[in-house]
């Protein structure tokens, strides 16, 4: 059963690695958005340090959003998705594979890049570590919830805008908890409550969202 999921992950990864430019685009976007805020609010270190957790997390959300429309679109366009739906495995497992590969392509690099960006904002070292972990733990939820939005808007005109309308309200808990964890460290408190809740949110999302995404895909494929 899970070999099916693993196959889908391997296939998506090899497809993504053959187009490195597509991989890099959301990361560059993350970089630019984070810098834009510094340009916008001015270079005062105190203010930037205060804003950094929120800015970096919002940047990560937006970059994730940017790569969501592609999650199923190419497979839908060339008919692969229909073949996957016809396979003798639950479609939820395929959706799980898609979400995991999306996380490996978008969430993991974002987490790796975030401490570097946080240096620009003069975050203290222990906050850098927590920022990395909060984005690492939080992005699976973003990919999972995003897979529902991507499935629902598959093949629609204006899909990219619709995805943000559908998905962003559902991203808010991850944003609050993730940015809250970093904020707690900056203020000298323990980030553990935030991180544990974020981990719970992510785990729950990974368990439940593939089935909702599969239902959405079935509707879109009808």
């Amino acid at each position: 059963m899970f070999s099916f999921t693993a196959r889908i992950i391997a296939r998506d990864l090899s497809l993504a690695l053959r187009r490195p430019a597509d991989l890099a685009a959301p990361l560059c976007f993350f970089l630019i958005v984070a810098s834009l805020f510094a340009f916008g609010v001015g270079p005062e270190p105190e203010l930037l340090r205060r804003l950094a957790p929120g800015i970096l997390w919002v940047g990560a959300l937006l970059s994730t959003l940017l790569s969501l429309p592609r999650m199923f679109a190419d497979d839908f366009a060339d008919g692969t998705l229909e073949q996957i739906a016809l396979a003798p495995y639950p479609l939820g497992l395929a959706a799980l594979g898609k979400a995991i590969s999306h996380w490996l392509i978008s969430g993991l690099p974002l987490a790796l890049l975030s401490p570097v960006l946080a240096l620009q904002f003069d975050l203290p070292p222990d906050a850098l570590v927590i920022l990395f972990f909060s984005i690492l733990i939080g992005t699976p939820a973003l990919s999972g919830i995003g897979s529902i939005g991507a499935g629902l808007t598959l093949g629609l005109r204006g899909a990219a805008v619709l995805i943000s309308l559908v998905v962003l309200p559902l991203y808010i808990p991850a944003l609050i908890l993730g940015a809250g964890a970093v904020d707690a460290v900056v203020h000298g408190m323990s980030p553990r409550p935030h991180l544990f809740l974020l981990a719970a949110f992510s785990t729950g999302s990974i368990v439940f969202t593939p089935w909702a995404a599969a239902a959405a895909l079935k509707i879109s494929l009808e």
């Binding site: 529902i148 629902l152 808007t153 629609l156 005109r157 204006g158 619709l162 309308l165 559908v166 909702a212 239902a215 959405a216 509707i219 879109s220 009808e222």
Partner: peptide, 17 residues
């Protein structure tokens, strides 16, 4: 979402999910 989908049945189901 439900206004963006032209096919009424699909719009209903997508909205329901």
């Amino acid at each position: 979402l439900s206004n963006a989908i032209d096919d009424a049945r699909r719009a209903d189901k997508a909205g329901a999910v």
